[in-house]
């Protein structure tokens, strides 16, 4: 039955249920058990944030700790995926893509096309993104647009515990390489999650809130920021429709376009930096495909074009918040020719 559990628990449950269902599913990454070769406990950590905790003993031999060698173990996950396993590799912070990107974008992403449709690479790379934990420039970025840019990768950015579980199970069962981006400030967010296994298909946006005045498309954690803004706006009589694409690749363009055709106004909220991100991508889509429906210029609410700052005084300014979203909505709602 549906219970209230955390984003972290939802992810752990998805992994456990899939490992139970399919013995080709393995989990690997730095300290995914924790304590390998050390004198104390094994399964000491269950990943730096505890998502994989408990799997090590429940599934002997299928939770592998790795040296801090992202190229080697991400590449190994990809190679194993070509050879009959369904590995879920944990790239602890999305920022670490810098040391293993070749394996992801030159290898995994391209096998199927480059080998004439004959390869199948069912690998999932789980990775933490996002600002808010004062983790500074190399541990806080929202780099999903970079993966979204690469043909051959699917990119998932779950916005709630319900989406996290269903999308992770779908990712594991999917035969293409999937980059699964978890917001590090969301692990303790709770929500209703069915106990049974379920899948949420890729490329189907969620409509989180109905409204006729403006469409807000928000990615990942920004969905809850948009909801907060929408609540404020409702008090002043502005009803926002909030769309959560769930996956940035594939992207459910139809739901976005249908909504904008109804509301005539678009605000895109994206925690990524502003050049070539999802906000620009979705704005371009709407400008091209729904130009005739637009009653105001599109607004984009994003991080500034800077690295993520450390000091709370700066980081709080960096991350889009509900007030900025509400202001953007007011701009488009009040816009006059």
């Amino acid at each position: 039955m549906a219970r209230t559990i955390s984003y972290r628990e939802a992810l752990g449950e998805a992994l456990a249920q899939e490992m139970e269902r399919d013995e080709s599913v393995i989990v690997l990454g730095e300290d995914n058990a924790g304590g390998a070769g050390s004198p104390g406990e094994d399964d000491a950590w269950g990943g730096v944030l505890g998502v994989t905790k408990g799997l090590y003993h429940r599934f002997p031999g299928r939770v592998l700790d790795t040296p801090i060698s992202e190229s080697a173990f991400v590449g190994a996950a990809i190679g194993a995926a070509t050879s009959g396993l369904r590995p879920v590799a944990e790239l602890m912070f999305i920022d670490f893509m810098g040391v293993c990107f070749d394996q992801i974008f030159n290898q995994a992403a391209k096998f199927r096309y480059m080998f004439g449709g004959k390869a199948k690479t069912p690998v999932v790379i789980r990775t933490m993104y996002g600002a808010g934990l004062r983790a500074a420039a190399q541990h806080s970025q929202a780099l999903y647009p970079i993966f979204t840019h690469i043909p051959g990768l699917k990119v998932v950015v779950p916005s709630s515990p319900y989406e996290a579980k269903g999308l992770l199970i779908q990712s594991i069962r999917d035969d293409d390489p999937v980059i699964f981006c978890e917001h590090k400030a969301m692990y303790d967010v709770t929500g209703d999650v069915p106990e049974d296994s379920y899948t949420i298909p890729f490329g189907e946006a969620g409509v989180v809130r109905d409204g006729d005045d403006v469409t807000i498309v928000a990615i990942g954690r920004m969905v809850s920021v948009a909801e907060e803004a929408a609540k404020q706006l409702a008090e002043s009589g502005v009803e926002a429709e909030i769309i959560d694409p769930r996956t940035t690749s594939p992207l459910d363009t139809e739901t976005i376009l249908e909504s904008v055709e109804n509301t005539g106004r678009l605000v895109v909220v994206d925690e990524a930096t502003p050049r070539c991100n999802l906000a620009t991508d979705i704005s371009a889509l709407v400008a091209k495909e729904a130009f005739g429906s637009l009653r105001a210029p599109i607004e984009m609410v994003t991080a500034p074009h800077t690295p993520v700052p450390f000091s709370d005084a700066l980081e709080d300014l960096y991350i889009p918040d509900a007030q900025r979203v509400a202001n953007a909505v007011k701009t488009v709602v009040e816009w006059k020719r």
Binding site: Y162, G166, P194, D196, S197, Y198, T199, I200, P201, G206, V207, D210
Partner: peptide, 16 residues
């Protein structure tokens, strides 16, 4: 409503 359709999809997505 959208909510009705969403709830039914939540059901339909369950394994089995």
């Amino acid at each position: 409503t959208r909510q009705l359709a969403d709830d039914l999809m939540r059901y339909k997505r369950l394994d089995g």
